[in-house]
Nucleic acid binder design. Structure first.
Length: 256
DNA sequence: ATGGTTGACGATCAA
């Protein structure tokens, strides 16, 4: 099973990119973030024509998440009891015997901003939700746009980003509280080095200069670690005309 | 330089 995460920054704009990338990369499960579509406007027919079942939780203008799957999606959860929030950032589904939790983590704007405090509170609540998910579903994948670079290897210029938003210690500690539940950043099972990014700002020709961060993550539970075969950041869609500022990240899991 | 670019929206806000 090949599983992927991609912040598309408007599914309406990026639908042609999604179609081309699905045809080339052939993932089995895809978590999308920042669809920016209300559910009545979601392109269900177009996605089904690409060969995927789909679940989604959207809102107008901001946020919005979706999961595409070759196999049926069940046990859909969008509103955990401890995360009652109108912002559409969470979509948990089950595919076969694997639980998949798609997250669009709060950005936070800037360290000290009220949105930053909201981000840390959201992450704490998410940790508690995931603790329960892990207890019910040993085979757990938690993936999405985490809006946190796990460590300085994931930052093009750690000095300039030191204690800035996406890189601050409280954010990294909040992520660690989640991985300490027994979840592993799957990319790091296969790559130790720096310079591997999943997001590049639209400004300052950041992609061309590889001035990026790795903030799109696929976390897997211990029960899935032995099945992990390969992880990748698929940079090609970021080179296409009118791209998302994020590119897809993928993980291949050996079946059964 | 608190800059720059993109998306949704229709003035700015969010990222």
């Amino acid at each position: 099973m090949k599983i992927a995460s991609w912040n598309v920054n408007s599914l309406k704009v990026r639908l042609p990119h999604l179609e081309q990338w699905l045809a080339e990369s052939k993932p089995d499960v895809v978590a999308l973030q920042e669809t920016k579509l209300t559910d009545d406007k979601f392109p269900v027919d177009e996605i089904k024509a690409m060969g995927y079942e789909v679940a989604f939780s959207g809102q107008k203008t901001y946020n919005g998440v979706a999961v595409l799957s070759r196999e049926p999606l069940t046990e859909i959860v969008t509103d955990p009891p401890n995360l009652t929030d109108e912002q559409r950032r969470i979509l948990a589904v089950t595919v076969g015997d694997v639980r998949v939790v798609n997250l669009y983590v709060v950005n936070g704007k800037a360290v000290g901003d009220e949105k930053y405090d909201y981000k840390l509170d959201w992450l704490s609540r998410m940790r508690d939700f995931l603790e329960g998910e892990l207890a019910r579903h040993p085979k757990l994948v938690v993936l999405g746009d985490f809006n946190i670079a796990p460590d300085d290897r994931d930052v093009h210029d750690p000095e300039s980003w030191h204690e800035k938003i996406l890189c601050s210690k409280p954010e990294r500690d909040a992520l660690k509280a989640i991985t300490d539940l027994g979840l592993t950043d799957s990319f790091r099972l296969f790559e130790d080095g720096d310079g591997h990014f999943s997001w590049w700002d639209y400004r300052q020709a950041a992609f061309r200069r590889n001035m990026g961060l790795r903030i799109d993550l696929i976390l897997i539970s211990d029960a899935l670690k032995a099945a992990a075969r390969a992880a990748a950041i698929e940079r090609t869609p970021r080179t296409w005309e009118r791209p998302s500022d994020h590119t897809p990240v993928t993980l291949e899991l050996e079946d059964r």
